[in-house]
């Protein structure tokens, strides 16, 4: 995977994206000036805890942020060179579910309970590919077979409540890949599922991305899921990307104190011995009242005076496996106590 695959052309480029929410009391900067590139065939993980802005980033990509109270306050989302934020709603509808599609977290609430499974999968095909009713249904059955629903011909006419959680998430995937998208955005696709079902779903997504040169953006809080699937990773904290790296490198040598803390605080089944878990003190911050300077400072064990005054610049580092590598932390900013690292 990550160490063998050459980096393809950039297919999606997010530049300085800002998504803000106007609340009664203050302006919440859910996503605050983030940029990243996605290459063709790449699986990019976006990792963060609740409130880090990972899901809002996601929704912004397809302009699904509820407006008001939310609004995209600035930036560009360049898909094949065209800015998705410029077109009208009609243009956007042609992209959604077509060239870029999405799998949501909760398979229980993302399907319409009143419509048959086959109809819901066929809907995108009829809209984007102009297929007739019969053709679309035949394709829907084919897709259900492809994602491993047993007895697909008969089950296609079932309603969502007749499917289990794992099967519903498969249906969501079938809908998402029905129009052979170039980018699949998966927002915590396995969080609501049991581990054995999670393994099935991840295997399915991995298989699809390997054979179709489809790019995947995987939004998750689970670093284990990222380790098994992604080529590169962005770590988000309080609305910003604090670290980005190739997957192997990030796990081998995390640079940001938050990333390091996160990696040290997850219990893992392969850890020999029973040493005490590290825990990051405090809790993720409230975005409505972020402190000045680095948002992670109050929880950071390596905070310095400057962290309190100024947000750290994004420092580019030499990446080993082709993916861009950078970190937003004063510890790594040139000329500033970089020596103390050693």
């Amino acid at each position: 995977m990550s160490d063998t695959k050459a980096r393809g052309e950039t297919i999606l480029s997010v530049r300085n994206l800002k998504t803000y929410f106007d609340t009664e009391y203050s302006l919440v900067k859910a996503v605050d000036d983030i940029s990243f590139d996605l290459a063709r065939g790449e699986a990019l993980g976006i990792v963060g805890e609740s409130g880090s802005g990972k899901s809002v980033t996601n929704l912004s990509l397809l302009r699904l942020v509820p407006t008001p109270p939310g609004k995209i306050a600035g930036g560009q989302i360049l898909f094949r060179g065209r800015d998705l934020l410029q077109g009208g709603e009609e243009d956007m509808r042609l992209v959604r579910g077509g060239a870029i599609s999405m799998i949501f977290q909760d398979p229980m609430t993302s399907l319409n309970p009143l419509l048959r499974i086959s109809f819901q999968i066929a809907e995108a095909l009829r809209l984007h590919h102009g297929l007739g009713k019969q053709e679309a249904k035949a394709k829907a059955v084919e897709l259900l077979k492809a994602i491993g629903i047993p007895d697909a011909e008969r089950r296609a006419d079932d309603y969502p409540h007749q499917f289990s959680g794992g099967m519903r998430q498969r249906v969501m995937i079938a809908m998402a890949i029905s129009c052979s998208p170039e980018i699949l955005i998966a927002d915590e696709p396995t969080t609501a599922l049991d581990v054995t079902i999670q393994a099935q779903i991840l295997e399915l997504v991995k298989g699809l991305s390997d054979e179709n040169t489809m790019s995947v953006i995987m939004i998750t809080h689970d670093l284990g899921v990222v380790a098994g699937l992604c080529d590169s990773v962005c770590v988000m904290y309080a609305g910003r990307i604090v670290e980005r790296a190739g997957c192997d490198e990030l796990f081998r040598d995390p640079k940001h104190p938050y990333t390091r803390g996160l990696l040290d605080s997850i219990p893992r089944i392969d850890s020999a011995g029973r040493h005490r878990l590290y825990s990051i003190p405090g809790a993720p911050p409230n975005l409505a009242g972020l402190p000045a300077g680095c948002a992670f400072r109050p929880r950071c064990d390596r905070a310095m005076p400057i962290c309190e005054r100024e947000y750290p610049p994004e420092v580019a580092l030499a990446g080993e496996d082709g993916a861009p590598r950078s970190v937003c932390c004063w510890l790594h900013a040139a000329g500033h106590s970089a020596r103390s690292e050693a």
């Binding site: 995977m1 393994a199 284990g224 380790a227 098994g228 997957c247 089944i269 392969d270």
Partner: peptide, 15 residues
């Protein structure tokens, strides 16, 4: 099966 399904946060090991 259950244990093998639990992801480990270590990419080379995962592969």
């Amino acid at each position: 099966a259950l244990l093998s399904a639990v992801p480990i946060p270590d990419p080379p090991k995962e592969r």
